[in-house]
Amino acid sequence: MKTYLITGGAGFIGSNFIKYLIEKHQNIKIICLDKLTYAGDLGNIEEEINNNPEKITFIKGDINNQELISYIFDQWDINYIVNFAAESHVDRSIEDAEIFLKTNVLGVQNLLNIAKKKWALRERKYKDDVKFIQVSTDEVYGSLGKNGYFTEKSNIQPNSPYSASKASADMLVRSYNKTHGLPTLITRCSNNYGPCQFPEKLIPLMIKNILNGEELPIYGNGLNVRDWLYVKDHCKAIDMVLEKGEVGEVYNIGGNNETTNIKIVKTLIKEIKHLLAENDEYKEVANTSLDNIKEDLITYVKDRPGHDKRYAIDPSKIKREIGWEPTVNFQEGIKKTIKWYISKY
């Protein structure tokens, strides 16, 4: 039986990863550790906990808590650490970077230190079948122009305090592999979307505002480009990297779906209006009339400082070496996402 320590497991991607593991694997144990800050919601995995009490143990706590992390290792024979725990909102990092450094850098260092100590057999030799996977972001690469793609060999050039903290964590993880031989992996994903995302991010915020007939604020001219990845595809990729990835390596995970922010918002308006018009049950959740769901809701606001122009990932390495590629196209994924938020609201 494999035992996973999933940090940040009540957040957006972490909770979807737990759902994926429960669905795919029979003989596993999951220790879900989450601080339950504003973006962590135990309700995201409440059903999984209730239906699988023998498989999932939830612990409320901070990855910076040395005693707690040591206790978890003493209580359970941890095979895999999958670190989703992070402060992740760029705007918040611009206002106050300190908590991003504490969680995203020092928290990761604490996890690495304790894993190194608890997994060690002797110098540079560790228990069999143990791995530390750092779930990172394409934002560590900085910004692209109109052409080209981020590869695993692209320079690390973060442009926000958030991405700088994630880049710092990545370098720590790499250093523990190179210096101490700790079996680590790093994944860097493009923008995720799907169920359970906290509504300060673009897609859930726009869905909520459209359903409420509220303004749809877009930074700058709305032409910033992101590569969108359905969260379940991301979860599958992480699982496959754990299983097949080469220790010490970095794997980029992209959705092959570059889209401008303004196009995303216009697509959401169109799809939500269509779903409400076709389904009376969905229509009942909207706090506005169909006539009010229109592009006139879009407003352009002052651009974010240091706003990266374009992200685009080359996922050829993970496809070639591990056999992963995205399976959910954006049209399908966005409909699933909208329906989930409609049912939630």
Rank of each mutant, 00 (worst) to 15 (best):
M1N: 09
L5I: 03
A10V: 08
S15P: 09
I18F: 06
K19G: 11
Y20D: 06
I22M: 08
K24Q: 10
K24T: 12
K24V: 06
K24M: 08
Q26K: 14
N27H: 09
K29C: 10
T37W: 14
A39R: 15
G40T: 15
N44R: 15
I49R: 13
N50C: 12
N50F: 08
N51A: 06
K55Y: 11
I59R: 01
N64G: 04
I69W: 04
I72K: 01
D74L: 06
D74H: 07
D74Y: 04
W76F: 15
N79V: 03
I81T: 03
F84H: 02
A86Y: 01
E87Y: 08
H89P: 04
V90G: 06
D91I: 08
I94P: 13
E95P: 09
A97K: 14
K102A: 13
N104W: 01
Q109P: 01
N113I: 13
K118I: 11
W119R: 05
L121E: 14
K125G: 06
K131Y: 04
F132G: 00
Q134K: 00
Q134N: 01
Q134M: 01
G142M: 05
G142Y: 02
Y149W: 04
F150C: 09
T151I: 03
E152L: 00
Q157I: 02
P158F: 00
P158D: 02
P158H: 02
N159D: 09
A167V: 01
A169C: 00
H180Y: 10
P183F: 09
T184F: 04
L185M: 03
R188L: 03
N191Y: 14
G194M: 08
C196S: 14
E200V: 15
L202A: 05
P204L: 12
K208Y: 09
I210L: 07
I210P: 06
E215N: 12
L216R: 05
P217F: 02
D227E: 15
W228L: 10
L229F: 04
V231D: 00
C235H: 02
C235M: 07
A237V: 01
E249Y: 06
Y251T: 04
G255F: 04
G255P: 13
N256G: 07
E258Y: 14
T259Q: 13
V265Q: 12
K270R: 10
E271A: 12
E271P: 10
L275V: 09
L276H: 05
L276R: 05
E281F: 07
V285I: 14
N287H: 15
T288I: 09
L290S: 04
N292I: 02
I298S: 05
T299H: 15
Y300L: 14
Y300V: 05
V301A: 12
V301G: 07
D303W: 13
R304D: 08
P305H: 11
G306H: 14
G306E: 12
H307M: 14
D314L: 05
P315N: 14
S316T: 12
K319W: 05
T327L: 15
F330Y: 15
Q331C: 07
I334P: 03
T337G: 07
I342G: 10
K344F: 13
K344S: 10
